[in-house]
Structure formats: structure tokens, C-alpha cells
Amino acid sequence: MMRRTFWGERMGKHVLLIEDEPNIIEAISFLLQQDGWKVSTHSDSSGAVDAVLNIGPDLVILDVMLPGRSGFDVLQDLRRASQTEKLPILMLTAKGQARDRAEAMSLGASHFMTKPFSNRDMLAAVRELAT
């Protein structure tokens, strides 16, 4: 597990990115930081819920295919915790099938994006969910 924090200037709003691919982490972090967000990252499913509770972000970007438990499991745990039951969560997945989207939404995801995504769509989704 590796956790890093980058500071941006968007009213101190904080995004936690839970993703295991280092080059995707670096690109999204840079993109959001340039857009003024404070960005923290967490690279696997173990301790992901604790990371959310400790950091208290305004938005979580959560990859579905994580080593260990899936992003769906993490999402479910976050929705059961009172502190995070209404936290905006943007799910990322390489699977675009309707059933994955339906599962994400039924478990309480705020938005669902399929990889590969455009940077413009990512920024638009983050801005809409966290502001």
C-alpha cells in the first residue's frame, strides 16, 4: 500500500483516488491537481475504508478491479458506514457491461466511468460530484 497527497487550490476540496495502476494514478493525480484539487491516493483494497475514514475526502474515485477485495466490496462497506453513506463515489472499471454499471449503481455509486475515459469527462464528473 502506498499513500500520497498532492495539494491543489480548489477551495481545499479533497479527492481520494483508490487505484492500483501507478501510471493511471500519476496521470489522474496530475490532472486533478492542475484543476485545483487536493489529491490523495491509495493503491489497494486493504485499508481502503480506513483511508477514506481517516482522510475524510469530498469525493472518492474507486477502481473496481483492485488487488484483494474488489472495488464493489469497498463501495458496499463505505455505504454501510454512517460517515460515508452519502459520500460521492465515482467508480472506475475496465468492464463496461450493463450489469457492472447496474451493480455499481445498486450498491450506491454516485457515478460510473469506463476505462479508457477522456480527461475532459473525468474532470467534468469530479467537478459535478464534489462541488
Binding site: I28, K115, P116, F117
Partner: peptide, 22 residues
Amino acid sequence: SLHEMLSSVTAIHATAGILVQA
């Protein structure tokens, strides 16, 4: 393989977009 491929494409797509647009 498909999962790995999509991850790579995502990383390249996002990074190339930053290099072009930033």
C-alpha cells in the same frame, strides 16, 4: 490480458491528453 490492456490504454490516453492539453 484484456484487463491489462485496458489499464495500459487508459494510462496512455490520460497521460497523452495531459501532454497535449496542459
